[in-house]
Structures are given as structure tokens and as C-alpha cells.
């Protein structure tokens, strides 16, 4: 026999339970923002603190390995080796091997030995190198001088210098996603200064909604397009990044390996939607060297999607590209 009191206490418990159930059950979603790779990196997703901390530690490791300006990095040691072979970490040899693939595919328009020239430019402080310095450095740009043999990397040309700035973030984004997959994470978003890679959908099951920076907004708070991604990457390169004006001429950070000067183009922003972020990084830069139509046709032939914004504001994309233009 249930007493009235037991009944009431039971009802009370049920009522409280029902009220609690009304509140949405918070998914364990963590996020962090770190300054790495000369930019702001955001990591978020449904994961434990230890896994997130592990991702940050990886970022720090990759920075120590790949930064051209950290004297002890693998890249700096290769550049300073005077053409001697240098034993590097497996991540570095993997990054360089994959990067060389994009150099070859682009016919040298993307070149990781741009370091001899890029080190002369200072886009942050608006410094244009002298014509003589550029001319002297240009012969040392040539990706065929790079040789990767297992864990050893060698530059045939002692004056050549690697600069992986155009590809490392894509590789790192993929590496972070692989790490998260290995840790059993099913939902995450990595944004390395504008290189976005996502794992799965958001914790609530909807795809990640990724915007494309408006190249005309002077870093204003506006986007020109967006796309919904579940597993994949969106990389956008824009001439608005680290650009400056001097003597009535505008200089931007994507250098033409044939001239040593910023690439001449009427494209102001190029985005690539791909499965792997390294493809996004490797192929966006190439778009600036082509006319938009053939660049996008090339992307489509590779099974990738792209979006190009020209200086006159017109936008072009690959057929069927899942971008919502705003």
C-alpha cells in the first residue's frame, strides 16, 4: 500500500525530473584559441580537455618544426645547411614530399623554394626589396632542387630556401583532424587563420556552416558566401591578406616564382572546397596564376569545388558548387 506521502514524494521527484529534462542536454563541446603559425588558430569540438590539450601541443610541435623563422626548426636547419643533407622529423619530410607534389602539378607556379625571395619581402611592415636583390635571389627559386629521401632532406642549391607558408597550414589542419579521429572525436572544427577543416557535423548533428571572408570588406565583419560542410575543408586565400601600398602600387603576399613579385591577377579571393585541407591550400594559390575560368575547370576536373572573386566583384564558381552567395 502506497501512502499519500510516498505518492507525493514520487510525484515531486517526477516533476523535478521532467523540469530537468526540459533543459537541453549540453554536449561536451570544448574550444580554445591559440596564437600559432603567425596567426590565430581556433580549435573546437565535442571532445575532452585532454584531447583538446593534445591538439594544442601538436600545433606547438608543428610550429617548432615548420617555422622558417625559428632557428632550430627543421625548415630553418634545411635552409641553413648549405646544401648538406639534414635529418628531419617524419612530419617534416611528409609535409615537404606532399608539398612537392603541388609544385609539380602547378608547373612550378606554386613553389616551396620561394623562400629565397619571400624572405626579402616584409608584407607586415610594407617593405619592398630592391630590384637587384630580387633579381639575385630569383635564380635560387626552383622546387626541383629539393630532395626528400626518407627522413633526410637536401637542397641541391645551397642558396635556395624553403618557405612552406603556402601549404603548411593545410597539412597541419589535416594532421589535427587525423589526430582527433584517432582520439575517437566525431565532431570538430579547426580554423588555422582562415584555413578551415571540419570533422563530422556539429555536436547538434547539423553541418558546420563556414563563411567566406568578403575580400572588399577590409577585414570587416562580412562574408560573401557560405557553405555547409560535414567532413571537409574550405581554404580561402585573398590578396587582402598582408597587402600594402607603396608609391601608388599595391603589393600582396602571393609571389610569382617567375618574377619574384606579387602575382599579377584580377582575382582578389580564391576558395577551394575539398576533402583534405592540404588540397585546398595547394590549389587556391594556383588559381591566382590562371584566368578564373580555366582555373575553376582544372579544379572541377580534380573533383574539387572552388569560388573566385574578381576585382570587379564578380564571382565565379565550379558547376554545382555548394556555395550560398550572399
Amino acid at each position: 500500500m502506497i501512502t499519500r506521502r510516498q505518492l507525493l514524494i514520487g510525484a515531486l521527484g517526477l516533476g523535478a525530473g521532467a523540469l530537468t529534462a526540459c533543459a537541453p542536454r549540453p554536449a561536451e563541446e570544448l574550444s580554445t584559441t591559440v596564437f600559432c603559425f603567425d596567426t590565430v588558430c581556433q580549435l573546437r569540438g565535442a571532445m575532452g580537455q585532454e584531447v583538446l590539450d593534445g591538439a594544442v601541443t601538436l600545433c606547438e610541435r608543428f610550429e617548432q618544426l615548420f617555422s622558417r623563422t625559428i632557428a632550430t626548426s627543421d625548415i630553418a636547419r634545411i635552409n641553413d645547411a648549405g646544401g648538406e643533407p639534414v635529418v628531419v622529423e617524419p612530419e617534416t619530410s611528409d609535409l615537404i614530399s606532399k608539398a612537392l607534389g603541388y609544385c609539380e602539378e602547378s608547373g612550378g607556379l606554386f613553389d616551396i623554394t620561394i623562400g629565397a625571395v619571400s624572405s626579402l619581402w616584409d608584407f607586415r611592415n610594407g617593405i619592398v626589396p630592391s630590384e637587384e636583390d630580387v633579381a639575385a635571389a630569383l635564380p635560387h627559386v626552383g622546387w626541383r632542387t629539393v630532395h626528400v629521401d626518407g627522413a633526410t632532406v637536401r637542397l641541391d642549391d645551397p642558396a635556395a630556401a624553403l618557405d612552406l607558408g603556402g601549404i603548411a597550414k593545410g597539412w597541419i589542419a589535416d594532421a589535427l583532424i587525423s589526430y582527433l579521429v584517432g582520439e575517437g572525436v566525431e565532431s570538430a572544427c579547426v580554423n588555422l587563420g582562415g584555413n578551415v577543416a571540419v570533422l563530422g557535423s556539429k555536436p547538434d548533428g547539423t553541418p558546420w556552416r563556414v563563411g567566406v571572408q568578403d575580400p572588399f570588406a577590409e577585414r570587416g565583419a562580412s562574408i560573401i558566401a557560405r557553405t555547409d560542410i560535414a567532413d571537409g575543408s574550405l581554404v580561402t586565400s585573398g590578396l587582402y591578406e598582408r597587402a600594402f601600398e607603396q608609391g601608388g602600387r599595391r603589393y600582396w603576399h602571393i609571389l610569382d616564382p617567375r618574377t619574384g613579385y606579387p602575382v599579377e591577377t584580377d582575382i582578389v579571393s580564391a576558395s577551394v572546397l575539398s576533402e583534405r585541407s592540404i588540397d585546398g591550400d595547394g590549389f587556391t594559390k594556383q588559381l591566382f596564376f590562371n584566368d578564373p575560368e580555366s582555373g575553376l575547370a582544372d579544379l572541377a576536373a580534380r573533383g574539387l569545388h572552388g569560388l573566385i572573386v574578381r576585382a570587379d566583384g564578380t564571382m565565379l564558381s565550379t558547376p554545382g558548387a555548394p556555395f550560398t552567395l550572399l
Binding site: E29, S31, T32, T33, Q42, R44, C189, N191, G194, N195, V196, K202, W208, R209, V210, G211, V212, Q213, P215, A221, S222, I223, R226, L234, V235, T236, S237, G238, E241, S269, S271, L326
Partner: peptide
């Protein structure tokens, strides 16, 4: 505390490329 999730992007996107 800094709360990256409290940062809002235009048009309610989760993050911005570029």
C-alpha cells in the same frame, strides 16, 4: 574569461575561411 564560442560571425556561420 575569454569565450571563443561567444564570438559571433556574420550571417550566423560557425567560422570564416580566408
Amino acid at each position: 574569461m575569454l569565450d571563443e564560442d561567444a564570438v559571433s560571425y556574420p550571417d550566423d556561420v560557425d567560422t570564416v575561411a580566408g
